[in-house]
Structures are given as structure tokens and as C-alpha cells.
Amino acid sequence: MIDFSNGYCVVETKNLEILKDLRSKIYDEVKKIFNIKELNIDEGFNLFHNHIKNETAGSLNSKRIELIKNINKNIDITYKIYEAFEDYIVELIGPDVLGQKIANLVIQIPNDQNPGEIHRDAPANSPYEIVMWVPLVDSYGTKTMSILDYENTKINLKNLKENNNWEQLEKNVYNKSPQLDVKFGQALIFMTSLLHGAKINKEKTTRFSLNTRFKNIFAPSGLKNQLQFFKKIKESNLVKYGSHIELEELLK
């Protein structure tokens, strides 16, 4: 059983080969788009910033967008992540699973002044979704994710409403967040309604991480159109047969 009492947990894949294969395919695209010759995947990701020193911000962003487009076109990232962490996902949301169509890739180079700002996904996402945050390199120190547990998220949102002080909220998230070292082969799973974000990466290496979302097929959706953002990953026999019966009734 996973301990999800705080609304998040760090879990280890039971099938590292799937993640290694996924990482390798993503690295192939990175090499192609950024013209990187390094053969060692770990070195290539961690020292990515050394290869892009001459890129302008505009060109870097265009290539990043091209990379996300290409990897999602060529690899079913969400399904791979599902396979790598299936037991945990099914334990949390059940056997009837929707997964995000397009997975996100985040590249956090050292001293990048624009890390992922503090936010929560739900609302507008459904609070019944889970986020899978999957680093492609070992993530530690300031290179990892900051996250508030459920109780502290509630307290801080209440304070924000009363004081309207976003700077204070940001400080609190960073101060109260546990140090979550997440190695390659592990994933951070968390509720979409938790406050989370990233600090400026003060480590000497670059972080590459994936994130995608899963929800039960029949769990209430958020404001995002479920058919637009999600696809079916797996269904139980019960839902397979139940939906057959419902369809037959509707077609009468």
C-alpha cells in the first residue's frame, strides 16, 4: 500500500527497462534537435546547458517546442509512464484509466531565472486526477520539485485569500516543502490540488523531467474537456461489458 496521506508520495518503478527505453528515445530526439554528440545519456541530459550556450532565448524556445511535439508524436509517453508505474496508478485511481494525451517535458538548466511558478492544477483540472512527475535524471537539492501537503496547501490558500500576499505564499511553499529527492527510476505522484512549483536550479546540472496526468474514466472531470485532453489507457471487464449494455439501450 502507498502512503498517500499527505496527497503525494515518491514511488519506485518495478520495471526500470521501460523508463530506460523511454529516456533513450527522448534523448535521441534531444540529440537530433540540439545537435548534441554526447553518447552517454546521463551526461547528455545533466550537462545539456553546456551544449546550448550559443543559442538565443528565442531559438532555444522554438527547439524546446519542437522537441515536445516530436517526442509526443513518436512516443506514447503517457502509456510508457503508465506501464512503468501501473501498480501505483491503479491503486490510487482504479483499473479504468484515462491518461493525458500530450505529456509535458520540462528542462531546467542551472540558474534559469524562470522556473515553474507556484501553482496548483485543480481547479481547473479535476481534483480526482493525479500528476506523475518523472525525472529523467536524479533530482535533488534545488533541482527537484517543491510541493505542499494537503493540509498546508489548505492553510496557505486560506491565508492568501485573507492577505492577498503572493510573495508570502511562495516563501511558505518553499519553506514548508519537504526535500524531495527523486532519482531516475522513481516518480513523484501528487494530487492536482496541491500547491507546487520549482525553485531556481542552483545545482551544476540540468534537470529534464516529464509530467503527465491520470484519472479514473468515470471520475468527475475538471473544466478541461476530457475528450480533448485525455485518452483511454485501460478499462476493466466490468466497464467493457457495462458500456456495451448502456450503448445497446441508447441505440434502441
Binding site: D96, L98, I217, F218, P220, S221, L223, Q226, L227, K231, K232, E235, V239, K240, S243, H244, E246, L247
Partner: peptide, 15 residues
């Protein structure tokens, strides 16, 4: 595609 459509409908009505 019936599972996705039916689930979407129930979710849409609830929302």
C-alpha cells in the same frame, strides 16, 4: 469508442 463517449457524457452532465 463507447466507453470514452459514455463516460464523457456522464461527466459533462455532472459538470
Amino acid at each position: 469508442f463507447r466507453v470514452e463517449i459514455l463516460a464523457y457524457f456522464h461527466s459533462f452532465k455532472r459538470l
